[in-house]
């Protein structure tokens, strides 16, 4: 199976798992390892080549939270083929960089916006942040009203998707 995994929001790594159980072959960015993941009590033990690491793992949707090497890590696992089908990461939705509350909504559906134009102002921990358009476009939806609270990653404003074939002749 092939995955694209990002660690702590870094760049994507190509990871293939081609065998099972104790004899799994895990190929990471072209480098092949023999590896296995074993449950030990309520923790895990990962063997990779000669290295044995204890770790804790929690799954949350496509996110894998790991505690290893004395700290927590978050990996996001994506099926690359699925991503290809979805047409890659969307730049059409502005989402919340942190949890907070909506202070100002500057746009309404149908508004034309230019790259860098403010869409909404959010407040978190007494800090106000303006969320801006990452590209020119037309506002499709505004997901929240002034005063509404949201979690990190919540969708704030979406733009009307660009036609897929815009760059075609």
């Amino acid at each position: 199976m092939s995955f694209e995994i990002t660690l702590e929001g870094g760049s994507a790594h190509a990871v293939d798992v081609t065998r099972l159980d104790a004899r799994a072959i895990v190929t990471i960015d072209g480098r092949e390892h023999r590896g296995s993941l074993r449950r030990v009590g309520d923790a895990y033990e990962l063997t990779l080549a000669d290295r044995v690491e204890p770790l804790w793992i929690v799954l949350d949707g496509d996110a894998v939270h790991l505690h290893a090497f004395g700290r927590a890590w978050t990996a996001t696992v994506v099926d690359p083929v699925e991503r290809a089908r979805a047409g890659g990461p969307s730049e059409d939705v502005a989402s919340a960089p942190m949890p907070g509350v909506v202070i100002i909504v500057s746009v309404a559906p149908g508004d034309a916006v230019v790259e860098g134009q403010g869409l909404v102002v959010i407040e978190s921990m007494k800090m106000q942040n303006e969320i801006v358009a990452v590209r020119d476009g037309v506002v499709d939806r505004v997901f929240l009203e002034v005063g509404e609270t949201f979690d990190r990653g919540a969708r704030l404003v979406s733009l009307v998707p660009l036609p897929a074939d815009e760059d075609e002749d």
Binding site: M1, F3, I5, L7, H13, V15, V17, A24, V26, I28, R31, H33, G35, S36, L37, Y44, L46, L48, R51, E53, L55, I57, L59, G61, D62, V64, L66, A68, F69, W73, A75, V77, V78, D79
Partner: peptide, 13 residues
């Protein structure tokens, strides 16, 4: 690589 391997093997995917 340890983290990536663990993530792959543990993933719901």
């Amino acid at each position: 690589h340890v983290l990536l391997a663990a993530a792959a093997l543990a993933s719901r995917r």
